[in-house]
Simulated assay, not measured.
Amino acid sequence: MSMTDTHRRELARLVDKEAALRKELHKYRAEVSKAEQNAQQYAQQASRASSVSSAQAALRSSSRESDKAVKAGKKVADIVKKIAENAKAQTLRNISLETSTKSDQRAQDRETERRRQKEKSEQRALDREADLRRQKEKSHAIEIARISAPTVHYVHIKPPEPEKLRVLYLTSNPGMDLRTDAEVRQVQQALRGAKYRDLVVIEQRPAATFQDLLDGLNDVRPHVIHFSGHAGTESLLLEGGAFEAGSEQVVSFGLLVKALDATDSPPALLVMNACDTLDGANVILPAVPVVIAMSDNVLDMAAILFAQQFYAALASGQSVGSALKQAKVIIERAMLDDTASELPQYIAREDVDVEKLILVKGEG
């Protein structure tokens, strides 16, 4: 039994004792009152007695009642003293109970905090194990994708020439929840103020289907393929081509690689302006030397700012590396979330230096 329980039990005993003392006090006070009344009555009888013997008998009775009143009064005084001592004992016991209760609460709080810290430590360990497991699964998936990737032409990047940079701009928005048209409009607006604006051609394919990708490879022969829309795990979400709202088609990176390889004029750069497109994108590198993708979920505003500044920089003769840095800077300036600027990332083949890769070069 804890000290707190001991104090509570002792305090309850004192309260019960106080109740018994007060009951006893009431009893003796009643005896004092009755004895005093009797003594007064006998004294009155003595004063009215007709004989000496009767008066003496009444006085003796009055004296006995007075003695009773005195004895009962002593009992009353003793009980009052005991009640006072009991009250003092209760006060001290309440103080001890309060101190013990606080001590128990502090001990309980320490135990609760210890358990909480232990649970947090165990959860961190579980999170680390889960993260390690995800990394292993991701590495395994990338390795499987690499092994199972189709054989494609190895694309060599040619030195920049004073020709127009052709961009096949595929936008897909089956759910009608993205601002892809606003993104294209802002890119075109930014290009109008660029140094070599006449050397960049944007060929947009709105509500793009997989067939639009193939047709674009044939008709545009793009140097850059840009996709803006939704993406899934190692896949892009294109329009399904049906008239009904929500018609869509999932195009895996494996199928995308085959499509990009099915041309005599493969692109030098693939830009995937869509959520979570960085994972697994390494499988695309044999077909496209440089891939820019998003490492996590990306907001509409960040996606628009990225595309706007990236193409404005390219059209000013900046390298792909510098254009990407400018895009990150403009996102960081505009966005409240500091991590948003780190979402656009690039992967490139070992023989490609994005800091020296210039896609737009004017004459002289």
Score class of each variant (00 low, 15 high):
residue 265 S to L: 07
residue 284 I to H: 01
residue 290 V to Y: 00
residue 326 Q to F: 06
residue 177 D to C: 08
residue 294 M to A: 04
residue 133 R to G: 05
residue 356 K to Y: 04
residue 77 A to C: 08
residue 328 K to S: 05
residue 196 Y to P: 03
residue 9 R to F: 02
residue 308 Q to S: 11
residue 69 A to L: 10
residue 1 M to N: 02
residue 331 I to T: 01
residue 278 L to Y: 01
residue 269 L to R: 04
residue 131 D to K: 12
residue 265 S to N: 11
residue 340 A to N: 07
residue 199 L to V: 00
residue 142 I to R: 09
residue 65 E to T: 06
residue 272 M to T: 01
residue 169 Y to A: 11
residue 47 S to L: 15
residue 134 R to D: 08
residue 305 L to E: 13
residue 350 E to Y: 01
residue 14 L to C: 03
residue 60 R to W: 13
residue 91 T to Q: 14
residue 180 T to N: 13
residue 123 Q to P: 01
residue 346 Y to S: 05
residue 22 R to H: 01
residue 255 L to H: 14
residue 336 L to H: 07
residue 42 Y to S: 13
residue 53 S to K: 12
residue 313 A to V: 10
residue 51 S to W: 05
residue 39 A to W: 09
residue 338 D to K: 15
residue 64 R to D: 14
residue 54 S to F: 06
residue 90 Q to L: 12
residue 197 R to L: 05
residue 315 A to Q: 05
residue 240 G to K: 04
residue 77 A to N: 14
residue 19 A to M: 06
residue 20 A to S: 15
residue 73 G to F: 06
residue 127 D to G: 00
residue 82 K to P: 04
residue 294 M to T: 02
residue 298 V to I: 15
residue 122 E to G: 00
residue 276 D to K: 14
residue 361 K to S: 04
residue 197 R to C: 07
residue 222 P to S: 03
residue 299 L to W: 08
residue 336 L to R: 10
residue 126 L to V: 03
residue 26 H to A: 14
residue 190 A to F: 15
residue 13 R to T: 13
residue 343 L to N: 07
residue 238 L to M: 15
residue 251 V to A: 12
residue 92 L to H: 12
residue 349 R to L: 04
residue 274 A to V: 03
residue 111 E to M: 07
residue 122 E to F: 00
residue 354 V to R: 00
residue 55 A to R: 14
residue 281 A to Q: 01
residue 274 A to P: 06
residue 192 R to I: 02
residue 154 Y to F: 07
residue 221 R to E: 15
residue 106 R to M: 03
residue 57 A to Y: 09
residue 206 P to C: 11
residue 101 T to S: 15
residue 238 L to A: 12
residue 158 K to R: 13
residue 2 S to Y: 06
residue 64 R to L: 14
